[in-house]
Nucleic acid binder design. Structure first.
Lengths: 230, 230
DNA sequence: TTAGCCCCGATTGAATCCAATCTCAACCAA
DNA sequence: TTGGTTGAGATTGGATTCAATCGGGGCTAA
């Protein structure tokens, strides 16, 4: 049975390179955008990508289509592709959507999370309080919140939420840079309230705390419109 | 200025056929699926589509990628494309999501709708009560609800909602067939309650009515699992 | 009779090539 | 100097072609 997943000589299983080139390129480009390697507004040239990944332009075009569907890339016919840019209004809209659907997703997860899951959640919240640089905070914050959503196997809601996180990633980074310096502790307070509600399996309270958490962030966002200029 | 949009001889502006083939094919296939021409599970062959639209397989693949991103088509590498099929659980999930985000979208629209908008909304609700066949009911119901969302210019929320309507369209049709025979009037009652709340510009009440409307439909759905078999 | 295997046709995936469109810089005129 | 225009270069869109993979029919053997 397992013979199919390994070769006789012990060489790497040679992942079927056929039929996945577009997806692979899309995954790498997506990661590069999320890391912050390509800022919003950056132009993406098909041949560049093709050369960088050792493929022809055809799978690159498929990758760009995928990322366009995710909203990470903006395509204009006969013209080219750019890393998507968000206006303040669009970002606020996404936060409003998150405010409605993340509590739902959380509710579906609360009864299914193990005690170990909740423990590691608490560790993440603690680590975040001690985090020094912005990148580490962002990584931990993302992991904290998305870890709340891995217990329930949803088919669309999970993807939706992940997608909203991805599309706003760059602006969360920029916002965190200016906001962290203000030294607000309530973010951490809300994280611990959230863990506490989950541990008590109080889905209603968890929903309320999370909705408020997202809402407060959205309102803070409005106070920093400079993040969206240019 | 307007010379650019018309030719000297008065011939049709010759819409730029370059750079839009994929989108055009996607639009037609999407319509065919929504109409019910292709049932879930139907296999889609690339060459068929290409021949039917007088194009090569390349733009067809782009169209399939687009529809896959919308969830209307399911692609399997090296194997083919099928019209997406929904399980009862997935459909319930989508209704739960709708229950959360459609009230939000409605709230954004309520203060922006004109009295004329609301009048035609009421006419639609009336027409629906008199509708005889299922197809007409579906068309009117879709128009009624989506008309509630055209006043506010949202960049993502509107697309999200439309997408959820599209993905569940086939199952709404099947469900309506078996449910309408039961002669339940409360659907129409709720529609009129909704119009009334909008006319009073009572966004909170409108949200409540709509959420309840969607929720009731979801619960009814659970009572008819046969729709999702096979 | 039936389970398993293999081979062949059908279908999709990717590369190369050519055509259409856009960008951009230089140029010209006001 | 500045605004608009035009042409060449760069870039994307689509067709054709070849290669890789999958599904199914028929064969073999127990």
């Amino acid at each position: 049975m397992s013979a199919a997943s390994g070769t006789v000589e012990g060489v790497a299983p040679e992942p079927p390179t056929h039929g996945a080139a577009g997806a692979r390129i899309a995954a790498e480009l997506r990661e590069a955008i999320l890391i912050g390697e390509h800022a919003p507004g950056t132009r993406i040239r098909q041949e560049d990508l093709a050369g960088r990944h050792g493929a022809s332009r055809l799978p690159v075009r498929e990758a760009l289509r995928m990322l366009e569907a995710e909203g990470l890339v903006t395509l204009v016919a006969n013209t080219g592709a750019w890393v998507s840019r968000l206006s303040l209004a669009e970002c606020e809209e996404m936060y409003q959507i998150r405010e409605r659907i993340e509590p739902l997703l959380l509710r579906l997860n609360v009864p299914l999370m193990s005690e170990a899951d909740i423990d590691s959640l608490e560790l993440l919240a603690d680590a975040m309080e001690r985090s020094e640089d912005v990148e580490q905070f962002l990584r931990l914050d993302r992991e904290f919140h998305l870890s709340c959503y891995t217990a329930a196997e949803t088919s669309v809601l999970g993807d939706m939420v992940l997608n909203l996180w991805n599309r706003t990633q760059h602006y969360r980074r920029a916002f965190t840079r200016v906001f962290r310096s203000e030294g607000d502790r309530s973010v951490h307070h809300e994280h611990h309230l959230l863990v506490s509600a989950i541990r008590r399996r109080d889905a209603d309270e968890a929903e309320r705390v999370l909705a408020g958490h997202i809402r407060r962030t959205r309102l803070e966002l409005t106070r920093h419109p400079a993040v969206f200029e240019n």
